[in-house]
C-alpha cells in the first residue's frame, strides 16, 4: 500500500562530506509540498555545504509541482556552488525525471556514497 502523504526526514549535517541528505517518501504533489514546505525550507535555509542530496527511494509519485520545487532548490544549490544529487528514484519516478529531461542537468548516482565519488 502506497503512502498517500509526503514525509520528510532530514539527516544531521555531515561535516565530513559537507553534505545534507533529505529523505522523501510518499507522494510529492501540491498537497504533499504544502505539508512539508515549511520544514523543508527550514532545513535548506542555512545550507551552505557542498552536497545537497535528495534520497527519494521511498517516493511513489511526483508531479510537476514537486519537480518545480526541486528545480528551484537545484538552481539555488548550483548558484551557491554546490552539487545537487537525487538518488534512489523508483522506475516510474525515474521516467518522470527522464521525460522532463532532468537527468541532463541533475546528478543521479546509484547511492548516496556514490555522490561523493562521482
Amino acid at each position: 500500500m502506497f503512502e498517500s502523504q509526503l514525509n520528510l526526514v532530514v539527516d544531521p549535517y555531515d561535516t565530513v562530506h559537507s553534505s545534507l541528505v533529505i529523505h522523501l517518501s510518499g507522494e510529492f504533489d501540491k498537497i504533499g509540498l504544502t505539508s512539508i514546505r515549511d520544514k523543508l525550507e527550514v532545513a535548506l535555509s542555512g545550507f551552505t555545504g557542498k552536497y545537497l542530496i535528495f534520497d527519494i527511494a521511498e517516493l511513489n509519485f511526483i508531479n510537476s509541482e514537486g519537480i518545480g520545487y526541486l528545480i528551484g532548490v537545484y538552481t539555488h544549490v548550483v548558484n551557491i556552488g554546490g552539487i545537487f544529487c537525487i538518488v534512489g528514484a523508483k522506475a516510474h519516478v525515474q521516467d518522470v525525471f527522464e521525460t522532463l529531461g532532468l537527468w541532463n542537468i541533475i546528478k543521479h548516482p546509484a547511492s548516496i556514497e556514490a555522490c561523493y565519488t562521482n
Binding site: 528545480i71 527522464e98 521525460t99 522532463l100 529531461g101 532532468l102 541532463n104 542537468i105
Partner: peptide, 17 residues
C-alpha cells in the same frame, strides 16, 4: 518515442540538450 530534451525554463541554454 521519447520526446527527449529538457523542459523550457529549466536551464538558460538548452541548445546542447
Amino acid at each position: 518515442i521519447p520526446s527527449g530534451g529538457i523542459a523550457l525554463g529549466m536551464v538558460e541554454d538548452n541548445s546542447k540538450i
